[in-house]
């Protein structure tokens, strides 16, 4: 039986304990929320799009360390990104935690061990669900 790697890597522990951007921005153009029905965790996310770039992103998270660390690392990666870049980030991150490669993810690659822990994938993708909700026009939801 393969021994799955530990998902609690130093970088994740550090971001989970001291999350960056863990407050809602002063102004926002997009907002979204996501819930994890398995545990009741919830993330509220807001971002400010100025022109083509995200100039501010923040969130309120009531969740486990993995979800908070994911929100923190995602917020760092999202700052300064364009919407198409964010969509790519979202796709790549979901592919990573499902075990389908880890291209151009920067620090978020720390979540690779979740490929072997399907029960916790939803924790790490929760902030990305909130991001998708924020970027999806209301009529399409």
């Amino acid at each position: 039986m393969s021994d799955a790697p530990d998902p609690y890597q130093a970088l994740i522990l550090e971001h989970g304990k001291r999350p960056r951007n863990a407050e809602l921005p002063a102004a926002h153009s997009h907002a979204g929320e996501a819930d994890n029905p398995l545990c009741g965790d919830r993330i509220q996310l807001q971002l400010q799009l100025d022109g083509e770039r995200i100039t501010a992103i923040g969130y309120r998270a009531d969740g486990c360390l993995l979800s908070i660390a994911a929100a923190s690392l995602m917020s760092e990666a999202a700052t300064g990104a364009s919407l198409p870049e964010l969509e790519q980030l979202d796709k790549r991150f979901r592919a990573l935690v499902e075990g389908h490669g880890h291209d151009s993810l920067g620090d978020l690659v720390a979540f690779a061990p979740l490929a072997d822990n399907p029960m916790r994938r939803g924790c790490a993708t929760l902030p990305f669900d909130a991001l998708r909700a924020a970027l999806t026009p209301t009529a399409e939801r």
Partner: peptide, 13 residues
């Protein structure tokens, strides 16, 4: 204030 899922994964280790 540790989230139960974090406890669950770490004791699973």
């Amino acid at each position: 204030s540790i989230h139960p899922h974090d406890i669950g994964t770490l004791v699973d280790r």
